[in-house]
Design a protein around this nucleic acid. Structure first.
Lengths: 111, 111
DNA sequence: CCGAGTGTTCGATCCCTGTTGAACACTCTG
DNA sequence: CAGAGTGTTCAACAGGGATCGAACACTCGG
C-alpha cells in the first residue's frame, strides 16, 4: 500500500510565516483563552500527532476551525492533510526566532 | 512656595502590579494599535515627563482615558497626579520581570 | 471667584470577533 | 457506491470593546 500522506485533492491550507507577521497580530492571536489552550496542548504533543478535533476545548468544530485559521495566520501553527484529517504542528523554532520569548511566556502557564 | 506635587483631593488612580496580571490580560492590552503607540512613545520619554494628553494618537480624550485605564490594569503604566494633569511612567523593570522580553518585542517596532 | 486646562465618567453607537447549527466537501472503509 | 468520520464554509446572532460627544470634577492662574 502506498502512503499518500500529504497529497490530497483538497485545497492545502494557507500558511503565513512568522517573519511576515506583525507583532500586533501575534499578540491578538495569543490573547484568547481557547487559542492559548490549543497552543499549550499542542506544545505538549509531538509534531503532527494531533488532529484538529482532538483538542479539549469547549467550542464546536466551526469555532475550532476558525481558531486554527487565526493561529495559522499568526505563524503559530502549521497544518498538513493526512487522509481525512488535518494534523498540526506548533512552529516553535520559527515563531521563537521572530518573537523571542513570546511563546515561552504563554507556555509557562502561571496564569 | 510649597511643592504639593502628588497630594491632591482627587481620587488616586487604581494600579495593578504586573505580578497580579494574567498573561492573557497583558497580551490583550498590547494587542491594540493605539496602546502600542502609547507604550512606544512612553518608552522613549523620561519617567513622569508625559501627561495623558501629550500623546500623538488619533483618538478623543474619552477613548484615551480608557486606554490608560487598560494599560494600568495590565501593570504597564503607573500614573501620578501633578497639579491639574496626570503624568505617566512605563513600568519597564516590573513588567519585564513578570513577562521577560514581552515589552521588548513591542518596542522593537519592526512591524 | 471665575475661567482655562486637564482628565474622568456616562450614555449611545458601531464594529469586530467569537459562537452556533446547518450545509457542504473530502477521505477512507465496507 | 453508500456511509461514517473529519473539517470547512455560510448565515445569523450575541457580546464586548473602541469610539464619540457631552457633562462633570479637579487644579491652577488671573
Amino acid at each position: 500500500m502506498v502512503q499518500r500522506t500529504g497529497s490530497s485533492h483538497r485545497a492545502a491550507p494557507e500558511h503565513t510565516h512568522p517573519d511576515d507577521v506583525p507583532v500586533q497580530t501575534a499578540l491578538a492571536a495569543l490573547a484568547d483563552p481557547v487559542r492559548i489552550a490549543l497552543v499549550r496542548e499542542l506544545a505538549s504533543s509531538a509534531d503532527w500527532s494531533r488532529s484538529c478535533g482532538s483538542f479539549d476545548v469547549p467550542v464546536g468544530k466551526a469555532a475550532l476551525s476558525h481558531h486554527f485559521t487565526v493561529l495559522r495566520g499568526a505563524g503559530l501553527v502549521e497544518q498538513r492533510d493526512e487522509g481525512p484529517r488535518r494534523v498540526n504542528r506548533l512552529r516553535k523554532e520559527e515563531f521563537d526566532a521572530r518573537f523571542p520569548g513570546l511563546l515561552g511566556l504563554v507556555l509557562r502557564g502561571d496564569q
